[in-house]
């Protein structure tokens, strides 16, 4: 009778410790030892101060070069100015851009062109004066005169820089010059892509 009791599997007695066998958590033979995590390893911060210095210098350089060029040539398929070996630098002036599609004053479209030609409905004075451009230039002159009255250091110079596509026919250029001349602009400059002399 006593032997029967010993052979039967031991059942946990009610109220006894119900935890699993600690031997289950023992490392298996041949298993790699788990590394302990380093206690609070210092976080490696990358010092970006020197990078910031470099970027500041680049930014200043870009800002300087951007502000020094008063007339900016914007890259576009519709606007490819011709090359020239001229070495005269552009100066602060009113920019009139002529493409095969339109005429722009300070980057604002003023007149639509038909394949580089000014239509008759936009012209007067025997087709020489471009009316919408004339009124826009007059507004620009008034605006610059107001600036001149408040700040004598920036006088109205009466210079217009013509930025034209290389395919524009000559009458459009001549008409723009005529119109600008009547709107108090007496000096003209053609903006071109600088070509190194061979």
């Amino acid at each position: 009778m006593a032997d029967d009791v010993l052979d039967t599997p031991t059942q946990p007695e009610p109220g006894a410790n119900n935890f699993p066998d600690p031997a289950l958590f023992a490392p298996k033979p041949g298993a790699k030892k788990r590394h302990k995590r380093a206690p609070h390893a210092p976080k490696a911060d990358i010092s970006i101060n020197s990078l910031l210095d470099i970027l500041s210098v680049i930014l200043m350089f870009l800002l300087k070069s951007y502000t020094s060029s008063s007339v900016v040539l914007k890259q576009s398929k519709d606007l490819v100015p011709p090359f020239s070996a001229s070495t005269i630098a552009a100066e602060d002036s009113t920019a009139v851009t002529i493409t095969m599609k339109d005429i722009l004053l300070q980057d604002k479209p003023i007149v639509q062109l038909e394949n580089g030609k000014v239509t008759d409905r936009d012209t007067s004075h025997a087709g020489m004066l471009i009316e919408p451009l004339f009124s826009a230039l007059q507004d620009e002159v008034q605006h610059q005169r107001k600036i001149e009255a408040r700040n004598p250091k920036s006088p109205f110079k009466g210079i217009v820089t013509i930025i034209a596509d290389r395919n524009v026919p000559s009458p459009a250029i001549v008409k723009v010059m005529y119109t600008a001349g009547l709107a108090e602009y007496g000096k003209f400059k053609f903006l071109l892509v600088k070509l190194e002399r061979g």
Partner: peptide
């Protein structure tokens, strides 16, 4: 750094990639 990262490409895009010159013309 983020601000610089935006400003520098924007200025690079706006700056003229080609060198320009002018010819003085009279009417």
């Amino acid at each position: 750094m983020d601000l610089f990262g935006v400003l520098i490409p924007a200025l690079l895009m706006m700056s003229a990639a080609v060198e320009v010159s002018v010819i003085n013309v009279a009417a």
